[in-house]
């Protein structure tokens, strides 16, 4: 059993403190009774009560949840298909282009993706709103799903699929009765990641939104620009709790795939 040296232990302590302290402060101050965000006035849940009466905020939250659900579902289907195409179909024509299109959105600056999608929707004369944000989020998040599912597909024993096919099982049935159960944890993890990414996105949603389709991050952003408010601390705390739950679940479902989706060398 290896032991950590003092230097390594200190590094870990400082690193994790740096990562978690700001969020911890945000969470603690969301329970601050004082209206002044920098003065501690005792514990209180009053800002959460204020949230419940903020109609606009609730509407934005519902929009965000609906978009996240719809886009994550689509992204999971398309992303799993792309992962299968890249790992199980050999060298078909245009394979390089597909893999390039799958990996590029992961690092593409969001302003470029957002602008290009908006210009597409304008050129196609599509009414902007719920559907355009959903389509945009699907495009971004399906790539994350592909990477998670692909890591799993590359890993597992292919002889099971081959055995099924040798015994005369048609490809489609082989997929549903052999492959899908084996990759199910990665698919579920991909879905949850897509869901939380969509719930978090500000830049792409800002470009592709239309009248009546304000999402939660757009709403938070417009408030944050005016300064820190205790209600915003409370909204952020709720959002952090939701996303953290989703990600912990995703990691438990797919120990390997979910730990570092989109990150190389794993």
């Amino acid at each position: 059993m290896r032991r950590l040296s003092v230097f390594n232990l200190t590094t870990l302590a400082f690193g994790l403190a740096f990562l978690y302290l700001p969020i911890a402060i945000l969470v603690i101050y969301s329970f601050n009774d004082s209206r002044l965000v920098t003065v501690w006035g005792g514990w209180s849940t009053r800002w959460y009560a204020v949230l419940l009466h903020d109609r606009d905020l609730l509407a934005a939250t519902l929009n965000s949840l609906a978009i996240a659900l719809a886009s994550a579902t689509l992204a999971t289907i398309l992303g799993t298909m792309a992962a299968l195409a890249l790992t199980r179909f050999g060298r078909f024509r245009g394979r390089m282009l597909l893999s390039a299109m799958v990996y590029a959105p992961l690092v593409m600056p969001e302003v470029i993706t957002g602008l290009s999608l908006l210009l597409l929707f304008v050129a196609a004369d599509v009414d902007r709103g719920f559907s355009t944000i959903t389509a945009s989020h699907t495009t971004l998040t399906m790539c994350f799903v592909t990477i998670v599912v692909q890591s799993r597909l590359v890993d597992f024993d292919r002889s099971l699929e081959e055995a099924a096919m040798d015994l005369g099982c048609p490809p489609l049935r082989t997929f549903f009765s052999v492959t899908l159960p084996l990759i199910a944890p990665a698919v579920a993890a991909g879905f949850l990641l897509a869901f939380s990414l969509s719930l978090d996105d500000l830049v792409i949603a800002s470009f592709t939104t239309g009248p009546g389709a304000t999402t939660l991050p757009i709403r938070i952003y417009s408030e944050v620009r005016l300064g820190v408010k205790p209600e915003i601390n409370a909204v952020c705390t709720v959002l952090v709790a939701v996303v953290a739950t989703a990600i912990v679940m995703a990691s438990l479902l797919s120990k390997r795939g979910a730990a570092a989706p989109g990150l190389p060398g794993r």
């Binding site: 690193g15 994790l16 990562l19 978690y20 700001p22 969020i23 402060i25 945000l26 101050y29 965000v37 990641l193 939380s196 990414l197 719930l199 978090d200 500000l202 991050p217 938070i220 952003y221 944050v224 300064g227 820190v228 915003i232 601390n233 952020c236 959002l239 952090v240 996303v243 953290a244 990600i247 912990v248 990691s251 730990a259 570092a260």
Partner: peptide, 22 residues
């Protein structure tokens, strides 16, 4: 690994906002 990844999945907007507080 999990502890390092977790903050990455919470909204960038929220993480930036947390620093405005500080």
């Amino acid at each position: 690994v999990m502890l390092v990844v977790l903050p990455f999945w919470t909204s960038l907007l929220i993480r930036v906002y947390a620093w405005i507080n500080i």
